[in-house]
Structures are given as structure tokens and as C-alpha cells.
Design a protein around this nucleic acid. Structure first.
Lengths: 341, 341
DNA sequence: TTGTAAGCGTTATCAT
DNA sequence: ATGATAACGCTTACAA
């Protein structure tokens, strides 16, 4: 374990003081062409690499940002994180990845860890629960951008998808196809997206004068297990829904599983629309009609906005840079027109 | 932007010196119960959080590790990274995520960035190309564990999958089903997994006395585009293969796409086995028979091994903790017995 | 143009 | 049991 080469070593090698070294390496202040060459040569020879740690302590900049999501395994977040990382690395930043599993305690711990590590900024998809910690950190001055979900009482740029209109479009499409009994499997309790998607569902129903049948709304949790349960419940109803709107990614998998197990033909017997458009949506049989969220772009945007925020003095604090992206209904083959009433 | 609360502030508040504060907070050395209480109270009141940066400078430990993969978007790496992160966070470590896109330059840049940030360890799935940088860093004393691929001339614990036997099993299975013309779409040139999987393919052929038809091995690049091309080439052959072994995840998607576009029925007209077992493998029509790599476990293992290595003095340097995991052939419905010769 | 030295927030040694 | 203080590696104001 060779000791790290420091500025002092380079200074010694080049026969000048550390001050000059720092100046030529960072290219500011005064120094002669001659010393510049000496310094560069010495640094090269010794293979000097600056210590970001030491620099951070002095400059109060770590060139690191934290990204907190519930689970990278979900395609939405995988692509999102990739988007963030791409713009971060283009700007010389590094990203610390944190998965909370929708667990408020893990979220808190990560928030703390990131604060202690002095990250320059934070991108966060808040889990349901108590957000006092986030607010504390935001008040502490760490720039934060929120993603996917809003939280009350915190003014921060937020990258949102118009969940209500996405859900609305999906259900509207189904109704347009003649469906009158459209079921919904809702997402995790307590996050805004869940409520918004449900609202879109209701809105579509209402607009077409369809009654809201409580039996047709099953609550899920954004995971496979509950989606399976919900689907099974649907299938055991006296009057089956003719279509189901599954309001998030992993749950689509759950619904698909039980439909397959019970040998229910999609879309012949039941039409299906999902929210989120994972890679595999086009490989299923039938290929899935889904509401696509531009997750990679959201990551890019989130990171760009974070940088914008980081670079704006509190004076310049450029309004609220929130953006609401429109999701897109990708029509494939999992829905079918209903003729008989 | 409230200034950070430092030890000095706490010391002032509690009316003692910073030395004691540090001691009680880190619980070592001497201090009276009374001061302990005072200190704890002051820290609590001021909401003191230690600065990992400052601590790192002193202790030379950052409590951060770097994970470098080619692309998190691939399910194999997504799950892998999640595995790493889970054990890292359990141990109070944070992970910095880096995607190289198999690009040696990006890899080098990230390696450098991580070195400058003084990460305590590194988990790396090396991209093809020049690895001098990795070796330099390893020589510099940063513990490294390699994943998925070996690189020559570097002794480091390596988490591997037995690619050859995985491929062998897959092809063997196909041959057992009566296939005599089985094609392979190979992976990215220059990485060990590609060669190993090809070797497994050849071995199975050889063992059954089947000739190696060069026309049946198409080179891919682990991405969709080349897999599409390769599949199209297969389909334009005079004598089509009756089965194709697609040797990595994204390429399965590519093959599936063109097979679907050309209305080739799987497995009726062509049987298919993939390497890697993404979530969606069971949702396709037909559900895919694949060789599953335990990617999450590999992440867990890799991180555990990294910690082991980090905690072993060079004296203790516990042999080579490399592990080779057995992949598992998951038989679903994309292969069919061939009767006619 | 260059060198010196203070300071960033800790830890840990050494007096007291 | 506690307090001063040097040191970690860097940036930067200031003196030379």
C-alpha cells in the first residue's frame, strides 16, 4: 500500500512550494511558464492525483450527489438513475445510489449518511411516511430535487409525470373500446402517484357517465404480491371486469402471472393496460398496452435541474423549476374492443 | 444556508474541549459520566452531525465503495448492484455507481474519479480493452473485487459464473431435444464471458459428435442491434438452424423482436435458449428457457468479499477468495423436441 | 512570480 | 478526566 502522493511530494520533486503547485494544477493565479513545466512534469512523474477529500474539506464541495429511490430493480428507477448518472458524470459529479424499499427508516438513514458525506445535492423519490428529515436537510441548505412524488410543505423543484392524465387516457381508451366494467389495481398507499392515478381513473369513469363501483377498485402496493391477490379477487367476482388498469410496473407482472395461471386470455377475456413501460412490455403475449413514463429523461432533467439549483445563489433562486411530463399511451395488443353490452 | 454545526460548536455549547466531545461521541478514551451527558445533550440540541469528509481526511477511510458496471439497465447488473448496495449499507457504507457502457475511456475516468475520492474499495466488471489503470489502482492499495469477467495479470477475488458450463448445459439440452443445427449469437468481443460461453457451445457440440458449422455462429455485441442482425442472418440461411442459443440478456430481446416480426413461431419453428434470466423471461410468449445467473447473490458475495479483503491486512491476505457460481438452466417453454431429422 | 501559513472538521497524542 | 495541539491534503489570502 504505497502512500498517496500529495501536493507536498510534488512540491518537493519540482523544487517549488505547494502554493504554486496548486495554482498551476488548477490553473489560476500567477506562475511562470517555466515553473508550470516543472510542476507538470513532476506531477506526471509522481503520478499525482489530487485528493477530493482534502479539497472538499476546504472548498465545501464534494462533487457528489445522492440519488434516493425506492428500488433500482424497477425499470422506472433503473432508467431514471441511469439518466441522472449520465448528466452527473458529464459534469464531473459522481452519484451515490440509495434504495429505500419505501421504508421511511432506511430513507432517513440514507438522508443522514448523505448529509454527513456532504453531498452537493440530492435527488429523491420520497417514500410514504414522515418527511421531517428531508425538510430539515433542505433547510440546512442542501439543494434537493424531488422526483415522481410530491411532499407537502417543501418547496423544491419536482420532476413529475402527469399521473392523472396518464391514467385518465388509459381508462378513457378502455371505455372508448366499449368497456363498462373497468377494474383498477391501485398503487402503494400514501404516495401521491397512487392517488393521482386513481383520480384519473375516476375522472374517466365520471366523464363517460359510468358509475364508480367500489368492487372494481382493488388496492395494491406497487408490488407483485398484492397485485396477484387483487387479480385473483377480480377473477372471483360474480361479474368480472372486462378490463383492468394496473397502475404500476411490478404489479403488471403480478396480474399477468395470475391471468396466465388461471388461463384467462388477454385481451379476449380481459383487456389490460399497465402504467409504466418496462422493456419487456413489448415481449409479453400479447404485447402490453401501457402508459409510458419517460423515466430516463426524467433522470436527465432531474439532474440538470439539480445542477441549476446548485449553481443558483439563494438570491438568484430561479423560481420553481418543477416540470410535469406527459406520459404517453403506448397502444399494443392487450386491449380489445367489446361489442356485446 | 445555515453553516454546518461542528465539533467546536458543540464544545462551546457544552463548555468542554473538542477532544472530549470526539471521545464521548466515538466512545473511547476517558470521560466522566457527567460530561458525557453534557456533551450528548449539546450535540442533540445543536443537531450535530459529524463530517465524514473531515473524518476521512484524518482516518483515511471514506466509508464509500465504488461499483463499476457496463450498464445498470441490464437486469443482470441492476440486481447485482442492488445486492452490493444491500450489504454495503448494512455495514455503514455507501455505494457510488458508475456505468461505463463497455467503454474503456469511461472506465478509466471513473476509476480515476473513484481513486481521487479515496473510496475504500472497488467492485468492478471490467470492460474490454486496456486494464493498466485498474492494475495501477490495485497496486496503489485499493482493494478490488472483480465481477463477471477476469482480467489478465491482476490477482483479485473474482466473482464468476461458470459460463462455459452454463452454455454447455443450454446447448446440451437443445441437442438432447434432437436439435442438430443449433446456432449461437455470441457476446461482445474481448470479454471473457463471451469466449467462455462460446466454448461451452462448442464443447456440447463436440461431445455429441456434431460438427461445428461456422455459419451457425454469429457474433453479437451484447446489444439489441447486433442480435437483430444476427437473427436476420440466421433466418436468411438456406438451411435454418432449428434452435438458437442467444448468449446474453439484451440480445435475447433483439432475437425475440425479429422472430416476432418475421412471424417465426417459437418454439415450433425455432427453439430458443437465452443466457441471463431477466424478470420478463417468464412473461414472453412462449416463456423463455434461460440460463440463470444468480446476479443479486453475486452482488452480495462480491461486497462481502470486498469487505473481507478490506479488513485483511496484507499480512493476513486471505488467499484468493474467488468464487465460481453455477448458473442454472431454467426450463420454460421456448424449446421443443425435434422429431424429423 | 513565488512562498508561507491559516484554515477546513476531524482524530489522537501528549501534557496537564 | 480533560485540554491543547499537530496532523490529514488541499486552497487561498497575504507577505515577500
Amino acid at each position: 500500500m504505497n502512500k498517496r502522493v500529495t501536493l507536498k511530494d510534488v512540491a518537493h520533486e519540482a523544487g517549488v512550494s505547494v502554493g504554486v503547485i496548486s495554482r498551476v494544477l488548477n490553473n489560476y493565479g500567477y506562475f511562470s511558464e517555466e515553473t508550470k513545466q516543472k510542476v507538470l512534469k513532476a506531477a506526471e512523474e509522481l503520478n499525482y492525483q489530487p485528493s477530493t477529500i482534502a479539497r472538499s474539506l476546504k472548498t465545501n464541495q464534494t462533487k457528489a450527489i445522492g440519488v434516493i429511490v425506492s428500488d433500482v430493480i424497477l425499470y422506472f428507477f433503473t432508467a431514471f438513475v441511469r439518466g441522472v448518472e449520465d448528466v452527473a458524470s458529464q459534469n464531473g459529479y459522481v452519484v451515490i445510489l440509495c434504495d429505500t424499499d419505501e421504508n421511511a427508516v432506511k430513507e432517513r438513514d440514507y438522508l443522514l449518511a448523505l448529509y454527513e458525506r456532504n453531498v452537493d445535492g440530492l435527488i429523491l423519490s420520497p417514500s410514504p411516511g414522515n418527511h421531517s428529515y428531508i425538510k430539515k436537510i433542505a433547510r440546512g441548505g442542501t439543494p434537493i430535487v424531488l422526483v415522481d412524488r410530491k411532499i407537502g410543505g417543501l418547496r423544491a423543484p419536482t420532476m413529475l409525470v402527469d399521473n392523472e392524465s396518464g391514467a385518465y387516457e388509459a381508462v378513457n381508451y378502455l371505455i372508448g373500446l366499449g368497456h363498462r366494467r373497468v377494474g383498477i389495481i391501485t398503487g402503494l398507499e400514501g404516495v401521491t402517484t397512487t392517488a393521482e392515478r386513481l383520480a384519473g381513473y375516476k375522472k374517466a369513469l365520471l366523464e363517460h357517465g359510468l358509475p364508480l363501483d367500489p368492487g372494481l377498485v382493488k388496492s395494491g402496493n406497487d408490488r407483485i404480491d398484492k397485485a396477484r391477490e387483487a387479480t385473483e379477487e377480480f377473477l372471483s367476482m360474480d361479474m368480472l371486469p372486462t378490463a383492468i388498469f394496473v397502475s404500476s410496473e411490478a404489479m403488471i407482472a403480478g396480474a399477468l402471472q395470475v391471468l396466465k395461471e388461471k388461463k384467462i386470455k388477454v385481451p379476449k377475456q380481459i383487456s389490460l393496460v399497465g402504467f409504466d413501460d418496462p422493456t419487456w412490455a413489448s415481449f409479453t403475449e400479447p404485447p402490453l398496452t401501457t402508459v409510458r413514463q419517460p423515466s430516463y429523461s426524467m433522470g436527465v432533467l432531474a439532474c440538470q435541474n439539480l445542477f441549476k439549483k446548485m449553481n443558483s445563489t439563494s438570491a438568484t433562486k430561479a423560481g420553481d423549476d418543477s416540470v410535469i411530463l406527459r406520459p404517453e399511451l403506448i397502444i399494443r395488443e392487450s386491449c380489445q374492443r367489446i361489442t356485446k353490452k
